[in-house]
Simulated scan of single mutants.
Amino acid sequence: MRRVAVRWLLGGHQHERGASIDNAPQNLTVTTGDNWAGPVLLCAGEIDIHTAPRLDRPLRRALAVRPAPAVVLLDLQDVSFMDSTGLNSLLAARAEAGRNGTLLALAHPGPQVTRLLEITETAPLFPLSPLPPRPPVPRRPVT
């Protein structure tokens, strides 16, 4: 089993992870719901090479709804980290949404996600939702 050690330096925060490819951490949850304009996906955790598929599946399902929704809203308030794999997931979903006449909007991106969008010059591609912040997702105590 191959070991992977990755260091990211982004937004003043360094994230270090050593994990085997076959036993990667799965610290992302995606909860789906609906609002008046279309599907809403609430994300919590980290979106990286290991967890991006957990976001891709519900995003594809939300974009496959017919008739196509006006907006698919991705709430990133509880996302603590996103790497280029997560950004690629957003860009692919944006392209698919555009083909269907749907707008992919982001709500509450945190400082790290905002910094990623800014340094990659992709921030203008994603409109921000004007929704007020919601209460944070309760976290289980670490034992």
Rank of each mutant, 00 (worst) to 15 (best):
A44H: 14
A44I: 03
A44V: 08
G45W: 00
G45Q: 12
G45R: 07
G45S: 14
G45I: 08
D48R: 00
I49C: 07
H50T: 12
H50Y: 15
H50N: 12
H50S: 15
H50R: 03
T51P: 05
T51C: 10
T51S: 10
T51E: 04
A52R: 14
P53D: 03
P53F: 06
P53C: 09
R54S: 14
D56L: 02
D56Y: 00
R57D: 13
R57W: 13
R57L: 15
R57H: 14
R57Y: 13
P58A: 01
L59G: 06
L59I: 07
L59H: 02
R60A: 14
R60D: 15
R60C: 02
R61I: 09
A62N: 08
L63W: 13
A64Q: 13
A64W: 00
A64N: 15
V65N: 02
V65T: 13
V65I: 15
P67D: 04
P69F: 07
P69H: 04
V71N: 07
V71E: 15
V72A: 01
V72R: 00
V72Q: 01
L73R: 12
L73G: 00
L73V: 12
L73W: 04
L73N: 07
L74H: 02
L74Q: 02
L74D: 11
L76H: 08
Q77M: 07
Q77K: 14
D78V: 01
D78F: 03
D78N: 10
V79P: 05
V79K: 04
S80M: 02
S80R: 08
D83N: 06
D83R: 04
D83F: 05
S84V: 01
T85M: 05
T85C: 10
G86R: 10
G86W: 15
L87D: 07
L87G: 03
L87C: 08
L87V: 08
S89H: 08
S89K: 05
L90R: 03
L91W: 10
L91K: 09
L91D: 03
A92S: 07
A92T: 13
A92M: 07
A93E: 05
A93I: 09
R94G: 06
R94F: 02
A95D: 07
E96A: 11
E96N: 07
A97K: 01
G98D: 06
R99W: 01
R99I: 00
N100Q: 14
G101V: 14
T102K: 05
T102C: 01
T102N: 01
L103I: 04
L103W: 12
L103P: 00
L103N: 14
L104M: 01
L104S: 04
A105W: 04
A105R: 08
A105L: 06
A105Q: 15
P109K: 09
P109F: 00
G110D: 09
P111Q: 11
